[in-house]
Design a protein around this nucleic acid. Structure first.
Ligand SMILES: [Mn+2]
Ligand SMILES: [Mn+2]
Ligand SMILES: [Mn+2]
Ligand SMILES: [Mn+2]
Lengths: 232, 232
DNA sequence: TTTTTAATTTAGATGCGTCTAAACCAGTGC
DNA sequence: GCACTGGTTTAGACGCATCTAAATTAAAAA
């Protein structure tokens, strides 16, 4: 069996890996988890011994197929829990992350199954993140583009908003930038700042770092700003 | 902060303590938790240093007021979770214990509050165990009598059934002995065995050890075997 | 009262996850 | 091509929760 800590390391490597093929650096893992570099080195070595990551000294780590499956399982737990907390227990979507981040390691497969069933096998969580299916097949974690890649005049629909920072999320939620919202890019300032227009005409300015955390799809002309349905 | 393990020790001492004033023995704690006696000794000492138990060497341990409050909080979590799993997620009442036993240590106060609210502030869990209120006031863990204390001819209503052993619970459930069931004691055999009659006339024989795990109240004549309401 | 026995505690060790301090690469700049 | 520098790993340590083996104590038996 794997400890909750091991699961957290695997999930972190999974998140940092993205669709890139480069190994993930020790320091980035350490920073993300709030531990020192030696701690990360030692845990990554343990995971390598267990065949969950491939590691090359001084280069970094990459998930093996098996490690990826574990990570996807944890991510599935996380996103199902977030969805459940929001839909069934009335949590605000800006508040579900921390609770899910703990519980994800402690629920049984039975619990996962029943929650999935009760929710009607949802495909995305409250932040727009895709929920891996029960066969734990890889999901596309970087569909669409980030808001920061867009130019003035572009019309887009918010697909996903990074859920890691509750403050950030609360701010965006308050400003009206939530999954499904239609935005028009009004200004891309040279000082790493982007201003977008909400459906009601209200402008919102966002620093580049935040704009990178918002994933969008291009809006077809005439779109209304309704939540976009996942097809299939 | 207290670890999940510490919480388990406190809960165990709480359960073993009952309404008795005697200290709980090291070995009983060790046995209940599936650890060796030295392990229990050392953990109990740690808890004593933290002011959560009173301990006298070679005598045993007793919860302090503070330790009791922690234990009651864990018990509240446990029973709320059991109720939630049964009522909202469709678990059978014989299957909720293990899941609750893990999750009880990892839910937030917010989660507890929302679950309590969603369930309408229930007073008993699926096994008939009382759920401590949110002020964590002590509850009567040994109301009524055990079935084993009763004599031939007595008419009783099942109030609580011990939830620790899933097999035992499944057997009783199958046999029809569940909280709210009206029973008539048919025979008290000298070989530590009791036979009771269900409302439908079906007889069920139970070894003394099991009969001690079933708490009952005396049925007023004419009672129908409906679940007895908690008053107030 | 003395001896025996059973429970309890002490002693010493292990694995996990973490730390700080020190040694060590690997790529960059001169 | 060689020294610098920043990220990485090694070394050594600690606290927690656990174990086995040995010593101790309290209670029961003789
Ligand atoms: Mn986590
Ligand atoms: Mn999410
Ligand atoms: Mn527990
Ligand atoms: Mn119960």
């Amino acid at each position: 069996m794997l400890s909750a800590k091991m699961e957290d390391y695997l999930k972190t490597i999974y998140e940092l890996q993205g669709r890139s093929d480069d190994p993930v650096s020790t320091s980035s893992v350490a920073e993300r988890l709030g531990v020192t570099a030696p701690t990360a080195t030692s845990m990554i070595e343990t995971l390598a011994e267990r065949g969950l990551v491939e590691r090359e000294k001084y280069k970094g780590a990459r998930l093996t197929r098996e490690g990826e499956t574990v990570a996807i399982e944890v991510v599935r737990h996380h996103r199902l829990l977030e969805t459940y907390l929001a839909e069934q227990l009335g949590y605000d979507w800006t508040e579900v992350h921390d609770e899910a981040d703990r519980l994800e390691h402690h629920i049984s497969e039975e619990f996962e199954r029943r929650v999935d069933e009760k929710l009607g096998e949802p495909e995305v969580d409250p932040h727009g993140d895709p929920i891996p299916n029960d066969r734990l097949e890889p999901v596309d974690e970087s569909s669409g583009e980030t808001l920061s890649e867009h130019a003035e005049g572009d019309e887009v629909v918010v697909e996903r908003v990074r859920d890691r920072d509750a403050e950030e999320l609360a701010y965006l939620s308050e400003a009206g930038v939530t999954p499904g919202t239609r935005l028009v890019v009004e200004e891309v300032a040279p000082i790493d700042m982007i201003t977008v227009c909400l459906p009601d005409g209200e402008p919102v300015s966002l620093p580049g770092e935040i704009a990178e955390a918002i994933r969008v799809s291009s809006a077809e002309a005439g779109g209304s700003g309704e939540p976009s349905e996942v097809e299939g």
